Computed example of a mutant assay.
Amino acid sequence: MLEAAGLTDADEAVYRLLVTLPAASASEVAERCGLAPGAAGLALDALIAKGLASRTDSAPYAFAATPPDVALLPHLQRRAEALDQARTAVNDLLETYRHTRRRRDAGQLIEVITGADALRQHLRRIQDAAREEMLWFCKAQYVAMPSGSNRAEYDALARGVRYRVLYERAFFDDEGAVENVAEGARAGEVARSVPHLPLRLAVADRSIAICPLVPGGPSGSSEEPTTALVRDSSLLEALVALFERYWEDGVPLLFDTAREPLGDALGEGAGGALPSATDKRLLSLLVAGVTDKAVASQLALSRRTVQRRVQAMMELAGAATRMQLAWQAARRGWLD
């Protein structure tokens, strides 16, 4: 069990014996461990060389164990650090190898994935391997993962991986979509909405991406999706830049991530000059294209209350229509 500390079976047997005794002679060690005297002597010499045992002062020919926390833990820590350094070196070599191969073999840059099952597996795999950030374009009508089924996201968020997700407006037409997005926000996801997204996209750590090559039908369609796994390349850089461009235009989706009680009145902030936190959440969902009914359900309000609060915000902003309200909200920074 202590091979990692550089001990043979005989060394370990002798050390385990010494740990149970104040001290023991070489002959006693040989007898109790079932070793020949010469083998016991070699094991004791090895333990002394490794700092795991020492001769006692009172009896020159007796041996005592060094406490395990003093003798073993620092050694194991050094080995662990050496393994970490070796792992880093191997990763660097692997990246160099892949970089060299990519320049000569396009198959190292783009891998074609066919079918929804294979797509699901790859999406889970890149999330399980992510260490820093995931970027997502979520379009309406899922192809591989129904809304709320991506449990790999919650595992990654728990590890500290940041998720930035853009939802197109039609995404919220599906039943339960708003609550699924709210659940992700409560777990740490940062979500925004745009009127339309050009494609489906997932990017892990800005080093690997999955995006469609040809349009695939939604779940239940006879058309299997064909997607590409894109590794570090100019194409990947372009996909990341595309995400960032749409992210800049996205409307932040504000949810009650702490599940705090909702405010009752408009203008709770800045002496009534600003919408309350509740109204900002309400406004962000409306601007994202979520229906009054879904907003009311998400905020635990009646539909009439939602409409009343929207009207109050329109009066506060001097807007005659909801579209003007959205424009005024963006201009005044109510959705930041």
Rank of each mutant, 00 (worst) to 15 (best):
E244F: 13
L21V: 08
A144S: 14
M134P: 04
A106T: 14
L242I: 02
A156L: 03
L229V: 11
L123K: 05
G217I: 03
A82Q: 14
I110E: 12
E315S: 14
P37Y: 04
R103N: 13
G176S: 11
R98I: 03
D117S: 06
A152M: 03
A26Q: 11
L335F: 11
P252L: 08
A49E: 15
V143S: 06
P261L: 06
L254G: 02
A312N: 06
G115K: 02
A185Y: 03
V29Q: 06
F137I: 08
A187W: 06
Y154L: 15
L2K: 08
R124M: 04
A288W: 04
T56W: 05
R303H: 09
V29L: 09
L242Q: 12
H99N: 14
I113R: 01
A330T: 13
A329K: 05
E175Q: 14
V29E: 07
L286E: 02
H75T: 13
Y154G: 00
Q127S: 11
A80P: 04
F171C: 03
A185W: 03
V214I: 11
Y61E: 15
R186M: 09
A277I: 03
P215T: 01
A62M: 09
A46Y: 07
R231H: 14
D174I: 02
V203L: 05
A312F: 01
Q121T: 09
G250H: 02
S276H: 04
R164M: 07
Q121V: 04
T226A: 07
G220I: 04
R131D: 12
G176T: 08
L197G: 02
V112I: 15
L285I: 05
A118C: 07
H122S: 00
A59L: 13
A24Q: 07
E12K: 05
Q298K: 07
P68C: 09
F137L: 07
V70H: 11
R151H: 15
P67C: 10
G289K: 00
V19N: 00
G34C: 06
A53R: 03
R281L: 01
W334F: 10
L286F: 08
G34E: 02
R102D: 08
R78Q: 15
S276V: 01
G272E: 07
I208L: 14
N180A: 15
H196L: 13
G250F: 03
V287F: 02
L123N: 06
G318N: 05
L236Q: 08
A238F: 08
Y167S: 06
I210D: 01
A30V: 07
Q108D: 14
